[in-house]
């Protein structure tokens, strides 16, 4: 059996793989857009001066990131959906529950990791900076906006880009709940063609290509906006 990539790239099979690839990209982008604000919110909870809010943020981060993503997906798809009221449940099941549940699980999971990156970025700016700004007469919000956050962003963005890389790879696990992303379609093509080596070679290259683009963005960002000594 010789290696022949054209079999899995042409016609119906190529179309399946392309559809899976696009859904994987879609999952990544939607999750990113939802997870970042959530992560910022969780980070602010953890940084708040009020203990119960800190505890809430802590519980979220530790509770979510210490459970494997596979368990999250199974929980949201097979478990949590059963707790919905019947009307909402039926609506969800008629509207691609597989993709919706994958986005929920990926968002909550990714946000837990991103929250820690945002939090440590803000914490890395010495408190003297805030105090100095306040001493110069800026209010708290203006001090944050003009002094602390511009410095923190440069520190936060590179780890967020590497979380995006993890997110991109993590979308592949959604195949277990029947989300028709790239890995799901690859298995479908393999079943139909018995061309395992070719199918997974193409799939690997697709994952690798997007990963390289994300890594490149990270490198370019750091070159353009290096972290400045505080």
């Amino acid at each position: 059996m010789s290696v022949d990539l054209s079999i899995v790239l042409s016609g119906e099979f190529g179309e399946w793989l392309l559809r899976g690839f696009l859904l994987s990209i879609e999952l990544t982008l939607i999750t990113l857009v939802l997870a970042f604000p959530l992560a910022t919110f969780i980070a602010l909870l953890r940084l708040s001066p009020w203990k119960p809010l800190q505890g809430l943020g802590f519980a979220y981060v530790e509770g979510i990131r210490n459970v494997p993503l596979l368990a999250h997906l199974m929980f949201w798809y097979f478990g949590a959906t059963q707790l919905l009221p019947e009307g909402a449940r039926n609506w969800l099941y008629e509207h691609d529950a597989e993709t919706v549940c994958a986005i929920i699980a990926l968002t909550l999971y990714t946000a837990a990791f991103m929250a820690e990156d945002v939090r440590s970025g803000i914490r890395s700016i010495p408190s003297a900076q805030l105090e100095a700004a306040r001493a110069l007469g800026f209010g708290y919000l203006r001090s944050m906006r003009l002094v602390v956050l511009p410095q923190a962003v440069r520190i936060i963005v590179p780890p967020l880009i590497s979380q995006t890389l993890s997110l991109w790879k993590n979308t592949s696990i959604a195949t277990v709940i029947g989300t028709a992303e790239l890995m799901y379609q690859a298995q479908r093509v393999e079943t139909a063609t018995f061309r395992g080596a070719e199918t997974f070679a193409v799939t690997t290259v697709a994952y690798l290509a997007v990963s390289c683009v994300i890594t490149l963005i990270g490198v370019l960002y750091q070159r353009r906006y290096p972290v400045r000594a505080a």
Binding site: R89, A97, V176, Y184
Partner: peptide
Amino acid sequence: EPNIRRAVPNVEVITFETAPQALVALQQRK
């Protein structure tokens, strides 16, 4: 999957790793 698509061309198919998972999805009205 190929057989049901052949028998009912417009059907929408969702596949799982094991048959028991697929059965649970049916029971859950998915």
